[in-house]
Each structure stands twice: as C-alpha cells, then as structure tokens.
Simulated assay, not measured.
Amino acid sequence: MISYPMAVGAITTRVLEAGHGDNVIILVHGTGGRADRWVRNVDALAGTGYHVYAMDLPGHGFASKGPGVACSVPAYRAFLGEFVAAIGASQPVIVGTSLGGHVVASYACEQAGRVRAIALVGSMGLVPIGDEARGRIQAGANNQTREGVAGKMQRVIFDPALVTPEMLEEEWRINNSPGAKESFAALGSYIASDLDKEVVGEQLARADFPTLLVWGDQDKTVAPAIGEKVRALVPDSRLVMLAGAAHTAYYERADDFNAVLVDFLAGRDGQTPRAGVTWS
C-alpha cells in the first residue's frame, strides 16, 4: 500500500492505493473518519486481485478543510465523481460506510451506468433516521475534545481492546488540525438540517446494479433494523450481519468483511460459511 497527496478538482486529498489493473474498488469513509479507516481492507482486497483506493473526503483527514470547503452529501458526491474520473476508473465497485455509504448510494443512483456494484456498511441516507439521531451525530461531529473522541470510538467499535491510546491520540490530533473545526461544524449543520431530505432508498430500489448491505449486529449509530428495512426495500440487494461488531464492522471484523465483499462480487453469496456471518 502506498500513500500520497492528490489534487481532485479544487480539493487536495490523501490517497491510499494498493494493487494494479482495471478491477477497481474505491473505499469511502464516514463522518470524522479518513482513508486509513480502511487500513485493514486495502492490502487484503488488493491481494485478491483488485486495484484498491481509499481517500480523505473534503474536511477530513489530510484533505482540504476549513472555510470555503463544502461538506455535504451533494458536495461529496461531486467530489467522488471527480475522483473516479481522476483515477480513470471504469465501472468501479464503490464501498461506503456511515455517511460515506450515503455518498456512495447517492452517486451510484445518479451515475448508475458507471458503477459495477456498491457495498454499504452501516449506511446513513437510505431511509430517514429522525431528529434525535441526526442531532446526536451533529453533536458528535462538533465534539472533538479528547473525551468526545474517546466516547465516539468506544461507541462505534464494540471490542474495547481495539480502541488503543495511539488510535485516540491520532484521532484527536487529526480532527483538531487547522480548518477541521469549521468543516465539522458545517457538516454537522448539514446532517442536522438536511440529511433526511436527501435519502436515496427509493431510488436505490429502482437501480439495476447489485447492492451489498453490511451491518454489525451491535451498531448503535445506525441500527441493524435499518439494514433489514433496506434489504426488504431493494430487490437487488443482500444483507450480511456481522456478529460482535458495531458501526465499524469493516474494521472490527476485517477478515470476514473482506471475504464477504469478494464473495459477493464473485457471485458466491453465502457459499462459504463463516462463524458469526449471516446472509439474508
């Protein structure tokens, strides 16, 4: 895996890349995250023959942030389209988690002929999540104190042993870098006021590309019941529940997530039994 800065339109971002060729997977993080959230997935997926990319969304990680940087699903959808064009990907598989799942689903519905398949992990933006949940997410985006960071990581990761002091220190430093406060405030305001106005579940139900839904059965940020609701709504979808994982199932149970994604893309849905992995 290599890491490098890249200009995408007016935005500078940081990219993680592994593998070669035209069989592309793009990984999109969620609110307060960054490209290296996918560190347990990039090399592993590349090892199965895919050309894998992850990047920092505007306002996050090492990407451009601060006043003048748009932070919303429409802005991120446009950025994702520019990124796809910049790397020259033709019909990539695009994976998104949390708010990144909303971005991916929104992009795929708008550019249906340009994606091979999508995978959505604990995704927002598929059905309305309500005022209380939106307010909670906004509060979390705006609370980048050490205590706030620790509380968030302990909520989104089920196994406390995975939440190390080094992880918390890095999270705090990056999310308090210049411009981060302004970007998180803008994104939090968007989530509180507009997120549920732009849900795409009904559009996804009419789409003609395969959709993989992955949820941790301990997800307290976007409840597993939402994954079940979307599975019933979207005919060309499969839902995988990962036991003992919360909102970051792709990180917490990376080996299982990577295997599930590769099997789904190969048309082997659920053919290889794995403990704690349930397909529906």
Rank of each mutant, 00 (worst) to 15 (best):
I191Q: 02
R14G: 05
I137G: 00
P58R: 00
E202T: 13
A223V: 14
P74A: 12
F62G: 15
R40S: 09
D236H: 12
K181V: 08
G122E: 14
V156Q: 03
E182M: 04
V230Y: 03
C109V: 07
W172K: 11
Q271M: 05
A245V: 04
D255R: 14
E198D: 00
R40H: 15
G135W: 03
V156W: 14
A75T: 01
G101N: 07
N41I: 05
F209L: 10
I2G: 10
S64W: 00
R146C: 02
T248C: 14
N176L: 06
V24N: 07
G227P: 02
D159R: 02
L27Y: 05
V84C: 06
V127S: 11
Y53Q: 07
G122D: 14
Q144R: 09
G140H: 01
P210G: 03
H51Q: 08
R274V: 05
G32Y: 03
A207S: 15
W38P: 07
T278V: 04
T164P: 12
G88H: 13
P235T: 08
A185K: 10
N176K: 03
N23E: 15
P74S: 04
C109W: 10
G49D: 14
G125A: 10
H20I: 01
A243L: 11
D131K: 04
L168F: 01
S3P: 07
Y50N: 12
E169G: 01
G21T: 02
A54Q: 08
G30A: 09
A243D: 13
G96N: 15
D43H: 13
G66S: 07
V73H: 05
H29D: 03
L213G: 13
S177G: 15
R146E: 15
R14N: 06
A117Y: 08
A105D: 13
L265Q: 01
L261I: 05
L265P: 00
Y53G: 04
R253G: 11
V103E: 10
G188S: 11
I137M: 03
E228W: 05
V69N: 10
R114V: 00
L239C: 12
R40Y: 14
T48N: 06
F184D: 11
A108D: 10
V121R: 00
A192L: 08
S64A: 12
A150L: 09
E166P: 06
P165A: 03
L265N: 01
P224Q: 04
L265C: 02
G125K: 08
A141G: 00
P160H: 06
S123F: 10
L242F: 13
E17W: 09
N258P: 00
V199W: 12
W279A: 04
G179Y: 08
V52D: 06
L57G: 07
G216M: 12
A192G: 03
T97G: 13
A161K: 12
H247K: 09
A223T: 11
D194L: 12
P160A: 14
G32A: 11
W215R: 05
S189Q: 14
V127F: 00
S193R: 04
A249Q: 13
A86I: 12
K65H: 05
G267F: 03
V8F: 11
R116K: 10
V104R: 07
A133S: 08
G216T: 03
G151S: 15
A86P: 00
T272A: 12
D269M: 00
P224E: 11
L261H: 01
A266H: 15
A185T: 13
D43I: 15
T248R: 01
